[in-house]
């Protein structure tokens, strides 16, 4: 192959990502799927990647069996307050963190199985009017809670026994924090996006606010999904759940914006839009590594490669209905696609 031919082959092979159906989970008693996630679970000296499904009143843990089957092994019942979301903890095994509440999160609980007698346990780690929560590396959770006047940004460390150990507060900005992202490349940096479109940068060690920068869009409530620091600049992947549908730039599901934290100046880097001929507005989604996935108003799931800047796969609704949830596995090689009836489909992304 000549250099030009090799470049074409490489380029084509990079673009040709596909989603292959691997297995399906059906929760027979489920009323409505709320969330899905994955967690490493160790038992009898053997650790495997398990799937966690959330319905309004219970959380189930599914272990893999041979021939792409899954077996429900544990179910925690949460009957007092409905489940709102699962909060993945990136480097934690044998522990599931969930957020509960009515319209907004009122409680964060840890779910585990006792190593002594095998009984299922729950531990309350935080209560309050919680606006945003994110699982951080090194067994930590960050949350924003309270009203604008008494907003509390708190880091909670979680023990192996499912208890909250140390607590540390970060300086609150004068704007409501709606989402957080750890900054890859800088161990002690955290960012958050606010209700009036600012990006706040904290030093996790000292709790200081280092910078508050405007995201630069007219519509409110941008959500940060991923942030990394490179060459002295801060790159942030954002979604805009309240973006208008008739935008001239093709109504992108995600955008990447680059900030200079020294000057607070920023500029757009890339839009992640649907290929021509497809339509649909961003409903919800997740970013992991260089992969971004979103459920669109059309009921389709779209996947983008953030490095290539391209939509690499589309998953239209199947015979059972529209997609309502999309999550990446602990690694970004597996995609979990959920429907309202509680069905979860596992796809290999390669």
């Amino acid at each position: 192959l000549t250099a030009e031919e090799l470049a074409v082959v490489l380029s084509d092979s990079l673009r040709a990502r596909s989603l292959q159906l691997a297995s399906k989970l059906k929760n027979p008693s489920s009323s409505c799927a709320v969330d899905v996630s994955t967690v490493w679970w160790e038992s009898a000296g053997f650790t495997e990647l398990c799937i966690v499904t959330a319905c309004e009143t219970f959380i189930s843990l599914w272990k893999p069996l041979a021939s792409s089957q899954w077996r429900k092994v544990y179910t925690w019942h949460l009957t007092e307050i409905p489940v709102i979301q699962i909060v993945p903890l990136p480097d934690v095994s044998n522990l599931v963190c969930v957020a509960l509440g009515d319209l907004e999160i009122g409680e964060i609980r840890l779910l585990l199985c006792s190593s002594e007698d095998g009984s299922l346990k729950q531990s309350l780690v935080k209560t309050g009017n919680i606006k945003a929560v994110l699982g951080l590396t090194n067994r930590r959770l960050v949350s924003s809670s309270g009203t604008l006047q008494d907003q509390q940004i708190e880091i909670i460390s979680v023990s192996e026994a499912g208890r909250s150990n140390e607590r540390q507060t970060l300086m609150p900005p004068e704007e409501t924090i709606l989402a957080f992202a750890e900054v890859e490349g800088i161990r002690d940096a955290l960012v958050g996006t606010t209700a009036v479109n600012s990006l706040v940068v904290w030093n996790l060690k000292t709790g200081q606010i280092l910078k508050k920068m405007h995201v630069g869009y007219s519509y409110p409530a941008s959500i940060c999904h991923r942030a990394y620091s490179d060459s002295g600049l801060l790159f942030v992947v954002l979604s805009h759940p309240h973006a208008k549908e008739n935008e001239s730039c093709g109504n992108p599901a995600f955008r990447m914006r680059v900030f200079n934290p020294k000057t607070a100046r920023s500029t757009g880097v890339m839009f992640f839009s649907l290929p021509p001929g497809h339509s649909g507005r961003y409903l919800e989604g997740e970013v992991k590594g260089v992969s971004a996935a979103a459920v669109l108003t059309s009921g389709t799931i779209a996947v983008w490669d953030l490095f290539l800047g391209q939509c690499t796969a589309l998953l239209p609704p199947n015979a059972d209905g529209n997609w309502s949830l999309v999550r990446w596995s602990v690694t970004d090689s597996c995609l979990l696609a959920g429907q309202k009836d509680g069905s979860v489909y596992v796809y290999h992304y390669s």
Partner: peptide
Amino acid sequence: CSESDLGPISLNWFEELSTEAPP
């Protein structure tokens, strides 16, 4: 540091802002 539309860039922005920001 280099100059661009984003202004002067510092590879040590995190440490520098941590020193400058109020405790």
